[in-house]
Structure formats: C-alpha cells, structure tokens
C-alpha cells in the first residue's frame, strides 16, 4: 500500500441503500487497501457525464469506503441506481482532510455535511480524543438512520432539539467549552459558525464544497479566496482544501 497516492479504482459496489427521505449510502470495495483521512474526498465517474462528482468519505475500513449523498442531479441519480456487484470508477483520495488535534473538540455537521465529521468522530474515538458530535437536519425524515451523534437538532423540532444547528452550537460552546471545532455543511452555516466561534476565540476547521473539474488542483476551477501571509490569494478547494481554517477563509 502506498499512502498519500491518488489512484484510479475500478471499485465494486457492495450496496446502495436509502438512509433517509433524501439521502443514500453507497459502500464500495476498492479492491486494495486505502488510507483516507476524514475530510478527504473521492470523485466518482457517473455514466456519460463529463465531470466526476466529488464526495467526502464517510467511512473507510481497509479496502472499503462508504459515501453518504443526496440525490441532487444526474450524477447522484446514477450513483443511486447502482446495484451490488456493479463496477464504479472512483479516483482519490483527494485533498488535505481535517487535522485532528489532541484537543477537546466539537464537530458540527449540517445536513449531509454530517458525513465527514462523523468519519472524523470515529477517528477521534480511536485516538481517545474527546469530541462531541452535533448535527442538524431540517426535520426527522431527513435524519439518516445511521446517524450516531451526541446532539441532534431539527429546524422544525420533529426530533431532538428544535432550532438551527448554529443555536445549538453556541449553547455547546458556552457549556462544553471545546478547544477546537470541526465543521461541514452549507456555506452559510459554516460562515455563521465561524463568526460565532470567533466570539469565544475557538478555532474552526471547515470542510468546503465547490463545483470542480480536475480534483487535483490543475484546472483552478474550484478556487476560493483565502488570507495567506497578509495577502488574499486563490486556493483550490480540491487540493489546498477542502479543509481550511475558518479564520483564513474570505467569506
């Protein structure tokens, strides 16, 4: 096994299952052992489409990886249609992933952003690092069956704490007092979470998302503006990210 090497895998689908009203889990066998960091992603070739679809990894054990996704368009419709035994072309793993620090942590996953932080939580558990997992969904029906979180909130209160994940996060910051936050979710949620965390002087690692083409930093299609050495520069979500410090992102 060569670690840190990006590869092309002709993977075999183990299963695709519906895990909530709009989310699915696909598990595939890459046929060789891979080492994936939480927050890294893989890109899936979707039959007939020009651009691969990037997904952060939800689980990785030896040669098997799992991905959580929502059906959004043609690509995810194709992935949803895959059956056990089908071949699926996967490239990766890409990007930097979260840097797990030996600090009391809060992980925040909004919606499908649950996937990489849940993966991180499993890694922090292995290392014995205290990490509270908070996630938020619009309602009970959108919560994947497989969710294992310390705190769950729903916008409409149909399950867990009623309200946004941001309000819940702020309360947790006050009482639980984490030293670091890891987060993934919609841009607006990440932005507001970083603002809130700044009030309490807690650093946040955010996993960003952007439409991309090459996945390896060459096409410059997925750049965001990031503060670097006193300047504002372009960084690619696919290679420099997808994880950035919340304080360096130009929101």
């Amino acid at each position: 096994m060569i670690k840190d090497k990006k590869k092309i895998f002709e993977a075999v689908v183990d299963k695709v299952e519906k895990v909530s009203r709009s989310a699915y889990l696909i598990e595939t066998d890459l046929k060789e052992e891979v080492d994936v960091k939480a927050g890294q992603f893989v890109s899936i070739y979707c039959d007939g489409l020009t651009l691969r679809r990037p997904f952060s990894v939800y689980s990785c054990k030896a040669s098997k990886i799992g991905i959580l996704f929502k059906e959004k368009g043609k690509g995810t419709k194709y992935i949803k249609s895959l059956k056990k035994g089908d071949l699926v072309n996967i490239t990766g793993p890409f990007g930097n992933g979260f840097t797990l620090e030996n600090k009391k942590a809060l992980s925040v996953g909004a919606g499908i952003g649950y996937a990489p932080v849940a993966f991180l939580k499993s890694k922090s558990d292995e290392c014995g690092i205290e990490n509270m997992l908070l996630c938020g969904f619009p309602n009970k029906n959108e919560i994947p069956d497989l969710v294992k979180a310390d705190v769950i909130c729903t916008d409409d209160g149909s399950y867990g704490i009623k309200g946004s994940v941001l309000d819940a996060a702020e309360n947790i910051l006050k009482d639980y007092k984490p030293q670091i936050i890891y987060a993934c979710g919609p841009l607006i949620v990440l932005k507001k979470l970083v603002q809130t965390a700044q009030k309490y002087d807690i650093p946040v690692q955010v996993a960003m998302e952007k439409e991309m083409a090459c996945s390896i930093g060459v096409c410059r299609g997925c750049v965001i503006r990031v503060k670097h050495d006193g300047n504002i520069v372009n960084k690619t979500v696919c290679k420099d990210g997808p994880v950035f410090w919340g304080s360096e992102v130009v929101w």
Binding site: T50, L51, E211, R220, G221, I224
Partner: peptide, 23 residues
C-alpha cells in the same frame, strides 16, 4: 494572474464551460 471571480466552471450536457481567466 489571479484569474476571474467565482463560478468558474460548470458542466453542460456534452462538456463543460470554464471561465478561469488564465490564472
């Protein structure tokens, strides 16, 4: 060159459109 502002790429039915701006 820093290239163009955001939304630089999108897929089309038979390819893609880029507006990287020669970064």
């Amino acid at each position: 060159r820093e290239g163009n502002e955001h939304n630089r790429i999108t897929e089309t039915k038979a390819g893609m459109i880029n507006s990287i701006g020669l970064e």
